[in-house]
Design a protein around this nucleic acid. Structure first.
Length: 292
DNA sequence: AGACTAACCTGAAAGC
DNA sequence: TGCTTTCAGGTTAGTC
């Protein structure tokens, strides 16, 4: 599932399929929770436009078009962007993972009932597909000059954040540090996996009150956070449930997890069993001996 | 303002 | 085998 690293890997792999290509046909599924901008509006306004850049802001992707329109994409929990036919490595299975065909032959991605947005281009080349089983993802088209409330609420991007940014947000807050890390208006892009991993590396327990985080803690948390985010980008992201890269490859960061999803397993430092408990309605994983 | 809850949706895995 | 329950990495509207 997509947090900052997965969104960044997606951005890098989808960029070439979007920029400089003129949209001709937009195909959608019926209106739903998924569409901030109704599908018929997308079908009406996008054709003829060509993207000039694709940037990532926190967990959002923003495609800018030559018209001045901007297309916001959020992958939610199960969103996947694919370049149709880019891979030929794997066949997209019903669960969203990749797999070889029974014959071991190579097959391209095809749109299915969960593919809510498809862009076809004038050059007749690969289409861009946005698939999302749970429909927690979002698509929004912003006209030129139109304010993007969602983007304006984002805090500093987690990769660019400083210890001071984090420390400032902790002052006078009653909530616990784990919950604060997940607040997109503080550090944009951090999700459950990387929050747990960063807190483990920093030696800070997720249940620590934010107001009790010291300058030194904040330094270690931000350093650890950026270390795990960068490492995950380098390894193609974490393919734990649904996430696959736009070309169908799995990321491998899940193999490097220290604590996330490892309840009961020995701590990599001290062998004490990793604990799991729910914090702010999210599962959290930590070592009670190494994290204080 | 800040903090907490429920809700949005579907499918896989675990439990019985 | 088959039915039921639990769980999932995100965000936001509503409530106190």
């Amino acid at each position: 599932v997509p947090e900052l690293p997965e969104v960044e890997v997606t951005r890098r792999k989808i960029e070439h399929a979007l920029i400089g290509r003129t949209v001709t046909v937009v195909t959608t599924t019926p209106n739903s929770y998924f569409f901030i901008t109704p599908p018929d509006t997308l079908e009406r306004l996008l054709p003829g436009q060509s993207a000039t850049r694709l940037e990532r802001l926190g967990k959002y992707l923003v495609a800018s078009f030559d018209s001045g329109d901007r297309l916001l994409l959020h992958l939610g929990m199960t969103g996947q962007l694919f370049v149709h036919g880019a891979s030929s490595v794997r066949l997209l299975s019903a669960t969203g993972g990749g797999s070889l065909t029974p014959e071991g032959q190579l097959a391209a991605f095809e749109a299915d009932e969960h593919t809510h947005l498809q862009l076809a281009f004038r050059d007749g080349g690969p289409r861009v597909l946005f698939r999302d089983v749970r429909k927690f993802g979002k698509v929004q088209l912003l006209r030129p000059g139109e304010a993007a409330t969602r983007l304006e609420k984002l805090g500093v991007d987690a990769l660019a954040a400083t210890a001071g940014d984090l420390l400032r947000a902790t002052r006078g807050r009653r909530l616990v540090i784990k919950t604060l890390l997940l607040d997109q208006s503080v550090l944009a892009g951090v999700g459950n996996i990387y929050a747990d991993e960063a807190l483990f590396l920093a030696g800070v327990r997720p249940t620590r009150r934010a107001a009790r985080v010291t300058r030194n803690d904040a330094d270690r948390i931000v350093t650890a956070l950026q270390q795990v985010l960068r490492r995950s980008i380098d390894t193609g992201g974490a393919s734990i449930n649904d996430y696959v890269q736009p070309d169908g490859e799995d990321g491998t960061y899940q193999d490097e997890r220290r604590v996330y999803g490892r309840a009961g397993e020995p701590c990599p430092n001290c062998r004490t069993p990793i604990l799991r408990r729910v914090i702010g309605q999210r599962s959290s994983h930590y070592c009670r001996r190494c994290q204080h």
